[in-house]
Simulated assay, not measured.
Amino acid sequence: MTEPVVIYPSGNHTATFIFLHGLDDVGKTWFDDFNYFKLPKSLPYMKFVFPTAPIMKISKNNGEEMTSWFDVHGFDQNAKEDQQSIERASQFLNSFVEAETKHGIPVERIFIGGFSMGGAVALYTVLTSSDAFGGVISLSTWLPLQTTFPKALIAGEKKKAIPILHCHGNKDSIIHINRARLSEECFKSMGFQKYTFKEYDGMDHTDCEQVSHLSYKMKCVRDKVKRLL
C-alpha cells in the first residue's frame, strides 16, 4: 500500500481533512491542487491527508488494473455495484479517521471528502459510520448503494446536522448530473439539514482543464471549513 501524502499544519494541529482521489489517480494529484489553491495556508490548524487507492482490476475497463477504491461496472445509475469492495473502501477511510483520533483529534474536528469515486466513498462512509464527522466535501460524485438507504443509515438522528457540501457539473460526461441529483434527493429525504448541493453550469468531470471552476470549488471548500471550525 502506498503511503499517503500529507500537508502538515503550520500552526497548532486541531483538525484534519482526509481527501480521496478518483479512479486511476493518486493522492499526490490533490496534494498539489490543495497547495496550488493555498488551502493549507488559509487553514493553518488543519492537517490534510491524501491517501492513494490500491491497484485492482476494474470490470468496466475489461479487467485493466489501476488505482481504485472499489470495482466499477459502470457509472450510470442502473450499473451493478460491488457492495463488498465499496464497504472495504469505507473501512479503509475509517482507518485513517481512527488514526487521527488516536493522535488526539476529536472526530467532530475531522472532515472527509473526495473527488468522483473518492467522494462516493466519503458520502457512503458518513452514512454508515457511527461517527459524526465535522463535515463532508464531495466533488463530482454520487452516493453509492443508494437503494440500501435509509435502512443502512447508522445513528441517523445524531448525524443529520453534519454539514455536507456536494458539488457537481451539469455537463459531467462520466457521472451524469441526474445521478448526482438523485443523491441529493436521497440525503434530503433522510432529513440531513445541512446538506448543500452546488451545481456548476457547463462543467464536465475533469478539473485540470477547468481551473476557474476548480478554483471556485476550492474556495467553497475553504469557506465551508472556515465557517465550521
Score class of each variant (00 low, 15 high):
1 M>R: 10
2 T>C: 05
6 V>D: 09
10 S>A: 15
12 N>V: 14
17 F>H: 06
19 F>Y: 15
20 L>I: 09
23 L>A: 08
27 G>H: 07
30 W>V: 02
35 N>A: 08
39 L>K: 00
41 K>I: 03
41 K>P: 00
47 K>S: 04
48 F>Q: 09
49 V>D: 02
50 F>S: 02
50 F>D: 03
56 M>P: 00
61 N>S: 09
61 N>P: 04
61 N>L: 14
62 N>C: 06
64 E>P: 00
65 E>G: 01
66 M>F: 02
66 M>S: 10
68 S>A: 15
69 W>V: 07
72 V>W: 07
74 G>K: 02
75 F>T: 03
76 D>Q: 06
77 Q>C: 10
80 K>T: 15
83 Q>N: 08
85 S>R: 02
87 E>G: 06
87 E>H: 09
87 E>Y: 04
87 E>W: 03
88 R>S: 15
88 R>N: 12
89 A>K: 12
98 E>W: 03
98 E>V: 11
99 A>V: 04
100 E>N: 10
103 H>E: 15
104 G>N: 14
105 I>T: 15
106 P>Y: 11
107 V>A: 01
108 E>F: 00
110 I>M: 06
111 F>G: 02
113 G>E: 00
114 G>C: 10
116 S>C: 13
116 S>A: 10
116 S>L: 05
117 M>R: 05
118 G>W: 01
123 L>R: 05
125 T>W: 07
129 S>L: 11
131 D>G: 01
134 G>M: 01
136 V>S: 04
137 I>V: 12
140 S>E: 11
140 S>R: 07
141 T>Y: 14
141 T>M: 11
147 T>W: 07
147 T>S: 15
148 T>L: 08
150 P>M: 09
154 I>F: 10
156 G>E: 10
159 K>G: 01
161 A>K: 11
166 H>R: 02
168 H>L: 05
170 N>H: 01
171 K>E: 15
172 D>Q: 09
173 S>P: 09
177 I>W: 12
180 A>D: 03
181 R>G: 06
182 L>R: 14
190 M>G: 13
194 K>S: 06
195 Y>G: 03
196 T>M: 10
198 K>A: 12
200 Y>F: 15
201 D>C: 11
201 D>K: 13
202 G>T: 04
203 M>I: 04
206 T>L: 07
206 T>P: 04
206 T>N: 15
209 E>N: 14
218 M>K: 10
220 C>I: 09
220 C>R: 13
227 R>M: 12
228 L>D: 03
229 L>H: 03
